[in-house]
Nucleic acid binder design. Structure first.
Length: 408
RNA sequence: GGUGAGAUACUCAAGUGGCCAACGAGGGCAGACUGUAAAUCUGCUGAUUUUUAUCUUCGAAGGUUCGAAUCCUUCUCUCACCA
């Protein structure tokens, strides 16, 4: 291949690699890494850090994972870093206070669960899972001290959220300063060529470059930042603690339903960051909705199908769609639901709690009063209702169902 | 180290002796309308089959009082100013 053809090929691949990302630093480096791979087959390393406290991956994480998978297609070897040491500090980005220390067994368990989920997207043969306590613990006080000499407070305060908090008079713990330093040091130890992370990680990602220079690693990592995916509410970032997430491990029906419940505005955001459809195709869909030739719900459905298929299977996705249609469009009961049993007679409010449909009998009574409880598809008005022996289908609101067998 | 201010439910925030399970806003849940979208309207949002009732809750522990989120004491934490 001529040098010119090689350049063209690299440029095209970079387009795919850069798709959807918010910002990159050191584009020339990306170019040369990919080009060298095509030229000589030399691979390069792409680092991404994850928190060991949240082994339940959600779609927000997959934005990053898909990007990593793209790199793997073009010579990237992924350094999947589990920040078991840094988790003890807590990244200052959030409101998070000092976190409790995780037991080694917990971390191990979480890591295992990570692997199961991550390899639905990543190629295991091109992925190395590493823990940063492995090289941070041996640093000791001396190493840590040395690390702190590479940076100063003024520059640390340039970090956006430190700056804001400092100006607003909100406390910043000294230990929080260590977080970016340690994250950067990870890149020194791993000699990463590229690091990717969320846009909120900009400062930390750049720290990797700074420290690689300070420690004379001989190269400075290129950086790619991905936008933060909003959660189901469309406002706050998708996170487990906010409860607005779609987990990778969600059942097909649930995953499909959750995607369909997002707002029309948010749908386009998900298309941009999660869909494999090209940007042109997405533009066409947008135009279709705007001129009325496409119903927004249909467009949302095809997104839900695509994503559900990705984490389950084509059949599961189609099944979920059919099920959804049955339950919501035709208000029939779901084909599968949790089953419970109880002794007759049982008070309805109690039954709802036992079937995990309501958190408390008080809540259950309120729900009955408001007319959101149905037994076998019929609305229930009597909050004193007693269930005799038999089989019932209990429903609270539109989404919560359970089958209850009452025996004498 | 000194002085001052503060800590109320998921969040913000009112309440300064009984009318307080605690105003209001946001959030959440539910109902109507819909496409399980958005917008809008309405209701609910500590627990308990004593349900015009009882119990627990206003940073923690004690105390005063017939009665405390409200008053007193000690403690813990947060913030501001000074050093």
């Amino acid at each position: 291949m001529t040098n010119e053809a090689l350049n063209d090929k690299t440029v095209n691949v970079l387009k795919e690699i850069f798709r959807g990302c918010a910002e990159t630093i050191d584009d020339a480096r990306f170019f040369s890494l990919v080009k060298t791979y095509f030229e000589k087959g030399e691979t390069y390393t792409v680092k991404a850090g994850f928190d060991p406290t949240a082994p339940d991956l959600h779609l927000g994480h997959t934005v990053l994972l898909h990007k990593l998978a793209t790199f793997q297609k073009y010579g990237g070897r992924v350094q999947f870093l589990i920040g078991d040491f840094t988790a003890q500090i807590g990244d200052p980005t959030g409101k998070s206070e000092t976190r409790k220390k995780l037991l080694p067994t917990q971390i191990e368990e979480n890591a295992k669960s990570y692997k199961e989920q991550v390899f639905k997207v990543l190629d295991p043969d091109k992925t190395t899972v590493v823990f940063n306590s492995e090289w941070i613990n041996p640093l000791g006080a001396a190493g840590m001290l040395e690390l702190t000499t590479t940076f100063n407070v003024a520059r640390m305060l340039e970090r956006d959220d430190f700056d804001k908090r400092h100006k607003a008079g909100i406390s910043i713990s000294i230990s929080e300063f260590l977080y970016p330093l340690l994250q950067g040091y990870d890149s020194v130890h791993l000699k990463s060529d590229i690091e990717i992370g969320g846009t909120d990680q900009k400062f930390n990602l750049l720290m990797g470059r700074h420290l690689q220079r300070a420690y004379q690693v001989g190269k400075e990592q290129a950086v790619m930042m991905m936008p933060i995916l909003e959660g189901l509410d469309g406002v706050q970032k998708m996170s487990k603690s906010l409860g607005n997430y779609i987990a990778v491990a969600d059942e097909p029906n649930e995953m499909f339903g959750k995607i369909l419940s997002i707002s029309d505005t948010l749908m386009w955001r998900y298309y941009e960051l999660l869909s494999s459809q090209s940007l042109d195709e997405i533009e066409a869909l947008k135009a279709g909705v705007e001129n009325g030739s496409l119903h927004p719900k249909k467009v949302k459905e095809s997104l839900a199908l695509e994503i559900t298929e990705r984490f389950h299977s084509r059949d599961a996705a189609l099944g979920a769609q059919a099920e959804f249609e049955r339950v919501h469009a035709q208000s029939e009961i779901p084909s599968e639901m949790d089953e419970f049993s109880a002794d007759a007679p049982i008070w309805i409010a109690k039954a709802l709690v036992d079937c995990l449909l309501s958190p408390s009998t008080s809540q259950a009574r309120r729900e009955i009063k408001q007319g959101s409880v149905k037994i076998d598809q019929n609305k229930l008005n009597d909050e004193q209702y007693q269930l005799e022996a038999g089989e019932y289908i209990l429903q609270v609101g539109k989404r919560k169902f359970a089958r209850l067998k009452v025996t004498q």
